[in-house]
């Protein structure tokens, strides 16, 4: 009996320690669910059913809610980022990508299927501007002063800049075939060109492409590391992760991550959590050794976010890379 008690105590302590490390939320777009993964044990512990087709998520500036967009369900779900409990549902048309502006005043939601960009007041979620943009508005990012949002237009190979205050389109220029992620970086915009083989460097004032940097076929998503030293690019077609020096933008390394690498978040131990769209799993990658563990999740893992950032002070969290 004492031995049983000892095992039970150790088990409970172990479980508590695992929970203390936090949770990863992985959206299963084709499975209409959100996989909840225990970061410590690297195992899926449950699935949260949603309405139809979720893709991406964003943490509210006050860290109280994790917003998940369900596109064909036309719904925004408000989850407790600590537990995954659904706290609120809001009808929003076709929420594909979503992100809060760095100052926390705006929530921008791209409607990819409906060719629209919705700009909400982040205080009460009332729609301030709806901007019609052709076509397929996909990813987004903001200028650091929160005056402008940049939207990639997957269907027309363009990038558009919208003034958040007025909703006016400032420019709309061609940047490369099927642009996906966009990232503000040191006064420039980096755009992953999914139909091509790398990223375009764009002037944020004019939208003119200044340079093109090859990273791999099907460049899809871009992430600045928490220390600001490197930029990671997921290459969907090649099945690789390109590592760029954040200053020179030169590719320093290429790591093989097969299975359609898509979204990425940073684990508490420095490893990278990467959703693999076609391999129903998450790769937890050590960027030094290039070795990765595989966590089985739902059939089509897309957006990924770890609540291990939650303890971060707000200012630091505000500078974290976009989760797109």
């Amino acid at each position: 009996m004492p031995r049983t008690m000892l095992f039970l105590t150790l088990f409970l302590l172990g479980a508590a320690a695992a929970r203390a490390q936090g949770l990863a939320f992985v959206i299963d777009s084709a499975g209409a669910a959100v996989s909840v993964v225990d970061v410590g044990s690297e195992r899926e512990i449950r699935r949260i059913p949603v309405l139809r087709e979720p893709h991406h998520m964003a943490l509210t500036p006050d860290h109280r809610f994790l917003l998940i967009g369900d596109t064909t369900g036309n719904e925004l779900l408000f989850l407790d980022p600590r537990t995954g409990e659904i706290l609120r549902r809001l009808t929003v048309s076709d929420p594909y990508q979503l992100q809060f502006s760095p100052d926390g005043k705006w929530l921008v939601v791209n409607g990819l299927a409906r060719n629209q960009v919705d700009i909400f007041d982040a205080k009460d979620y009332h729609l301030v501007h709806r901007v019609a943009l052709k076509s397929m508005p996909s990813h987004l990012n903001f200028s650091p002063d929160s005056s402008t949002v940049y939207i990639t237009l997957q269907g027309t190979d363009r990038l558009a800049a919208i003034a958040l205050g007025s909703g006016a389109v400032l420019w709309n220029t061609e940047v490369g075939e099927t642009p996906a992620a966009v990232l503000w970086h040191q006064g420039r915009l980096l755009v992953a060109v999914m139909g091509g083989n790398g990223i375009s460097v764009v002037d944020p004032a004019t939208g003119v492409v200044r340079a093109r940097i090859p990273t791999g076929r099907g460049a899809h998503n871009l992430f600045l590391s928490p220390d600001g030293k490197v930029i990671y690019v997921t290459n969907r077609v090649d099945g690789t992760l390109a590592v760029l020096d954040a200053q020179s933008l030169k590719v320093t390394r290429e790591i093989r991550v097969p299975g359609g690498p898509d979204d990425l978040d940073f684990g508490p131990d420095g490893r990278l959590w990467i959703s693999r769209r076609f391999a129903h799993s998450v790769a937890v990658l050590d960027p030094v050794s290039g070795h990765y563990d595989v966590i089985e999740v739902g059939r089509s893992p897309h957006g990924i976010w770890l609540n291990t950032h939650d303890h971060l002070p707000r200012a630091l969290a505000g500078t974290a890379p976009p989760h797109s």
Partner: peptide
């Protein structure tokens, strides 16, 4: 698994 393989190696 099969659908993923088809996507990764043929369709995409």
């Amino acid at each position: 698994t099969l659908a993923g393989w088809l996507s990764e190696h043929l369709l995409i």
